[in-house]
């Protein structure tokens, strides 16, 4: 039996309120940009299939989180079962950049005993004229955390694919090398080879076709 997807990775998207988390995810999973999106209350989730090499597909479960601080007591429960994370700030909002460290600490303290592979995302790069955080500065910060840095725009669809795909590849490499392993009771990485659910795999294929349109 050929697997529809090799693995399923669960990812979490975090960052200050209104940096554009939901818009970035929607651009990636639905291929469209909403001018406005209602504030996320608690947690929301999306999914999409990513082809990292010809024939090698990974299913991404993407968890969107509320940015307002008081929802952290809710969202922190979702770190533990995530293998990847996109840490967003808005390049036109210096404060959101300054809070990156706090977000990272928050994630690290709640992910134990597992680990999350993060990518730092400078969002809204179409608004370059209003930039308050330089690329160099952000790259330096990402470097100090050992993360990739990528600048994205959901509005102009810049680097959105790249941000998710590169993160997926990085995790895939770690899984291949055995640095990250599938564990019972942990939702971060799941294998796609499940021989006894042929029926539901077919359904997955159907719904994925819809996603990729």
């Amino acid at each position: 039996m050929e697997a529809i997807w090799l693995y399923q990775f669960r990812m979490i998207v975090i960052g200050d309120s209104t940096v554009g988390k939901s818009c970035l995810i929607r651009r990636f999973t639905e291929g469209r940009f909403a001018q406005v999106s209602d504030p996320t209350v608690g947690v929301d989730f999306f999914s999409r299939l990513v082809e990292i090499e010809p024939g090698k597909r990974i299913k991404l479960q993407i968890w969107d989180t509320a940015g307002q601080e008081r929802f952290r007591s809710i969202t922190r429960a979702y770190y533990r079962n995530s293998v990847g994370g996109l840490l967003l700030f808005d390049i036109t909002n210096r404060r959101s950049f300054q809070n990156v460290h706090e977000w990272l600490e928050e994630a690290r303290s709640h992910v134990q005993p597992h680990q999350i592979v993060f990518v730092l995302v400078g969002h809204k790069c179409d608004l370059d004229g209003r930039r308050q955080v330089s690329r160099q500065e952000a790259e330096k910060l990402a470097g100090s955390y050992g993360m990739r840095y990528v600048e994205t725009s959901a509005r102009d669809a810049i680097n959105v694919e790249k941000a998710f795909t590169e993160l997926t590849r990085d995790i895939f490499e770690l899984v291949k090398r055995g640095d990250i392993t599938i564990q019972e009771g942990w939702e971060g990485v799941k294998s796609g080879f499940v021989p006894n659910v042929v029926h539901s795999s077919e359904e997955v294929l159907k719904s994925d076709r819809r996603c990729l349109c």
Partner: peptide
């Protein structure tokens, strides 16, 4: 519905 993701999608 027998798939985790599909259940979530339905509930949404």
């Amino acid at each position: 519905i027998q798939d985790n993701l599909e259940i979530y999608q339905y509930l949404r």
